[in-house]
Design a protein around this nucleic acid. Structure first.
Lengths: 353, 353
DNA sequence: TTGTATGCGTTATCAG
DNA sequence: CTGATAACGCATACAA
């Protein structure tokens, strides 16, 4: 086997025109330092005893050769990837982008790297996810991306999984931002403005949106109001624009449109403007997420702020616990959200951000 | 060595409380199919001849065992990661998010996965990048993230690198959106509006922003105007807000503020509003990127649209060529950009989006 | 404290 | 067409 380190012809064997460089191996370091590869490994990773003399020699050789342990070898030997995955629909809005950023930051601090997978516009999500599963030690999955069936299979295969803003699946952690209670408060605020004819825009079965509508209905029920079912719409400015156009033409036009997220609310704002309607004078509009555009839109959007960055960080921490085995039970965590009142829901004489 | 596949005790050896499952190995498949591992490998990847009979047996065993080749083993044997990296400052605005998404999509279609690294707020960028370099076959690096020195080292180490919106570095591909020519056109449009006192907001040495200022200066020179040096500011809504506050108090207030990007322009809009200034009546404002908020701001922002998605796709394609060795020379590609006239630069009686 | 030998899971060469 | 076996690069029991 490895009697003589690299039988013959090695070193500058950079074949191929481009960067197929290989870098020195632990054998070359060992040879140069006059020790065994075991000692090199121990010296470098601080596992097991190494004499000061040996350590010096190793470090010197490492320095001279610019040795960096080959990750592929390390991974195979360690039996882990030192990488985690994250599956999201897209990065169009700030919501996913922020969460992913918080996730990457925390994961990176834990010495792991993160592999991303976006599912919007992909036809073969399941195979993509399965492939990803083979390249990571664990993964975070957002709602609206992977079918329950597939998640269950991943979990069954033993892969640590953290679900974000998604209905729970046996065997996986769940993390989400509070929806229902804040939706109740938002709705009560709208009722206080005198709004009575509510329209809900956007829907997803069993996701976080459904929880928000639960809150809205709950608050309305207290006033004897039963709203129409949520109006289906694409989760985008354009999709909401179209849906709103139809809605605004109704004989019995709503006096407030509660949108599933901010981007949709922006679309509604546009539709109202084109219809010659004043917001909030003729109709109120609210969003959810508090993306940047929410603050800059005119009127500025009343919405709900989610701790996006923190969601990402928590997901990373939870996943790490599962991967390392530091925790074996499953947790379902809910982070608080904050109602952000601006002007799109009605006039507020005094305060106005 | 492998005389008997897995000497003893294997299979359901899932140790550890969590998901340390291992999955079947190629040896188990071979044993079950009654062939050698070489045949299994050949049958599965279609390399080399395999009799129909053998193929059937292998496929059956694979099916029954739900065998999936272990990526770590594959990577080590193949000598590649089948993963590419991308280094960006953050995902706050839609710019990076969109480019990254285009990149991920294209990379994924090429069968590679993408590992991300964001540098904003990180103190040890260089070591992070070096670590990333050991985990990928090539990487895309955005401007404003990694020092030239480090990039040069990566390239020297043989790693294929594609630079995005960044000054060229010997040995790396360069990809960017057109800046100077469009900046000239933007400036000429502003001049046509009668604006003469120009302020430039935001600066970065040697990045894509510098190219834009070159275009602005070039156009102004044609009118005998020499603008002040760019006003330094953080690349964010808040940073620009502060910088603009100072700028608007100047005795000789500018009549147009050209911003390095849209987010900064939004900050300026806010500052103008707070200062009781009308945009574009009292002062014009322009951005760059055409992010979503640009369209929804009031007044809507005049800006420049970049083919963000396409930039990501092209970067992925270029990197793949370098990684596979399909191309050995270095290319410097520039994608066209589009001037988007809205209302923040002055009134346009007829057309108005 | 050190070195030897073996395992990690595939790929691919080369002799049958 | 098939199988034995040498890489791939590193980690680590185990023996010395």
């Amino acid at each position: 086997m490895h009697d003589e380190p690299r039988p013959e012809g090695q070193a500058d064997d950079r074949s191929g025109p481009t960067g197929t460089s290989t870098g020195p191996t632990i054998y070359e370091v060992a040879e140069r330092a006059g020790v065994s590869i075991a000692t090199v490994s121990r010296a470098l990773r601080g596992t097991g005893p190494v004499s000061g003399r040996s350590r010096e020699k190793v470090l010197k050789a490492v320095e001279e050769l610019r040795f960096v342990p080959n990750r592929r070898g390390v991974s195979l030997a360690e039996g882990r990837h030192a990488a985690n995955g994250v599956v999201f629909p897209a990065l169009s809005g700030p919501y996913y982008a922020e969460v992913v950023l918080g996730y990457e930051e925390a994961t990176s601090e834990l010495g792991q790297s993160v592999i991303i997978l976006s599912t919007d516009g992909r036809g073969d999500v399941e195979s993509l996810v399965r492939d990803l599963a083979g390249r990571v030690d664990g993964m975070v999955i957002f709602g609206r991306t992977v079918p329950d069936e597939t998640v269950a299979q991943l979990v069954a295969s033993g892969l640590p999984v953290v679900l974000l803003a998604r209905t729970p699946v046996e065997g996986a952690d769940t993390l989400s931002a509070e929806n229902t209670a804040t939706a109740v408060r938002l709705t009560e605020h709208l009722l206080a403005h005198g709004h009575r004819r509510f329209a809900l825009l956007g829907d997803d079965a069993g996701g976080d949106i459904a929880e928000r509508w639960d809150g809205v209905r709950q608050a309305l029920a207290g006033h004897g109001i039963v709203p129409d079912p949520p109006v289906p719409s694409e989760f985008s400015v354009e999709g909401a624009y179209e849906a709103a156009q139809a809605l605004l033409k109704t004989s019995n036009r709503p006096d407030v449109i509660v949108c599933a997220d901010d981007e949709m609310a922006l679309g509604v704002l546009l539709a109202a403007e084109d219809a010659g309607l004043d917001v909030p004078g003729d109709i109120a509009v609210t969003g959810w997420d508090d993306i940047m555009a929410a603050r800059h839109a005119r009127p500025a959007l009343t919405t709900v702020r989610q701790p996006m960055r923190e969601l990402g960080r928590r997901a990373a921490a939870a996943l790490d616990e599962l991967v390392t085995g530091a925790r074996t039970d499953r947790r379902h965590l809910i982070l608080p959200t904050e109602l952000v009142i601006r002007s799109s829901c009605g006039s507020h004489p005094l305060e106005d951000q």
